[in-house]
Amino acid sequence: MASGTTTAGGAPLRQDAAGERRWRARRHRWDVRWSPYAYIAPFFVFFAAFGLVPLLYTAWASLHRVELTAPADMEWVGLRNFSRLVADEFFWNALKNTVTIGLLSTVPQLLIALGVAHLLHGRLRGSMFFRVVALTPYATSVAAATLVFVLLFGRDYGMVNWALGLAGIGPVNWQNGAWASQFAVSTIVIWRWTGYNALIYLAAMQSIPDELYESAALDGASRWRQFVHVTVPSLRPTILFTIVVSTIGATQLFGEPLLFNGSAGATGGSDHQFQTLGLYLYEQGWVNLHLGRASAIAWAMFLILVLLGTAAGLINAYRRRTG
């Protein structure tokens, strides 16, 4: 590799070369120092205009009583919008629902994805067909997917209850049962995302060296034990990534429960049984028109996530130090 241009030559040339080297070194330093800012600048310019400004407005609004009917009229209320959340049964209910729907959708989704990836990892006829099919639900919009699931989960004429009826079960009230509705909403999420996650796991599985399996096989490990002791540990970073992404998605879950509720909009069911935080925020802001309170909910959600993230980080650091 050419690491310099210092071929032998006359003194003037050497001086030139030295000068050039100095200039290049300076340019290099300048480059190293400032170019990072140039790379992040486009993102942060847009972020400042379309991300930060709304964010700061939201923070400011959360300290006021302000209505959508007149967003310019702000009445200072300090932290009242936050303090009232503590006693707000609907906020806690939404938080609880967000957690349970989050678990109901994320855990099965990732487990199924892992299983499907494992199956796809074998030598398989038509593997490309299965992979493409796995991805098609992902291409469907939340709106289109929810529309069709509302019909499928209909209490009186839906296909799901018809099938359950053949087995002598039901009819289940998928819209207004407590657990049934959470399950139904989760199903939409699971349906849309499982295939995508399966492909990500599959990619990671393919990069696991065969020797690991061979030595495990030599130790007499069964297929299942190989899966548990070789595959899963090797996938840990990937699994972590998908958990992070799914968790963020789950905390912001909004479109599915909104559209699943048909004409009743943002209530999240007659007992608010599937009203998520995102939906409660929407109800406060866009139905009840209280922008200040909605802003406070948004920031509370944000703080909860930051807390979760920090906790996860601390646990991780602790484990790394002790383990």
Binding site: N176, T267, S270, D271
Partner: peptide, 18 residues
Amino acid sequence: LVIAQNLADVGMLQVDQR
């Protein structure tokens, strides 16, 4: 709107469906 909708879609729906 808020009053009518919540009476119907929260309160009465609970009585009717739950």
